[in-house]
Amino acid sequence: MKKDARFYGKLFFATFCLSAFTFGGGYVIVPLMRKRFVEQYHWIEEQEMLDLIAIAQSSPGAMAVNASILVGYRLAGLCGALVTVVGTVLPPLIIISVISLAYQAFRDNAVINLLLKGMQAGVAAVIANVVVSMASGIFRQKRILPIFIMLGTFLASAVLQVNVALCILACAVIGLLDTVYQRRHGNKEAGK
């Protein structure tokens, strides 16, 4: 991959567009990034994307910003991270600056309200879709533990409202212990 002006332009434009559409919380950027960087550009592999998301989730700050920095750094080092963080921050910065000047008119606009209501349902579908395809990837591994971890974190977070950072930490420890156990028992596949 050539790191020329065209590459940086493409990277900036991609993150700018993704950020402009992350309605409803940071996780929405996951399906968008996956589509763009994994499926369209083939710049990052599926497994690696999941790793980057896990790191973004366990770091302080906004998830979408963290994920963008990680993707930028992974693709083109510090320069790449700079390009992606600016691309991610600009859309909300521009939009909120405009809105904060005319907030009342915006909030009372019936057309905008209905449009946003429809988009909310669309966002829900996008998230549901990415969960289905990611979960089927986990099921295809045909191992009990990952499936157990996936369902466990879902219940802990959705039903029991356990802190996300705590979930991440617990799963990191479980993954590590599992790998230690497999290595002790001479499984060469451990950690794959």
Binding site: D51, I127, A128, A135, V164, C171, L176, T179
Partner: peptide
């Protein structure tokens, strides 16, 4: 790699929770 193998399914679970 061990740590990451625990985190990958966790991320899917967390995204599902956010989706709900």
């Amino acid at each position: 790699r061990g740590v990451l193998s625990g985190l990958r399914p966790a991320v899917v679970g967390l995204i599902a929770a956010a989706g709900i």
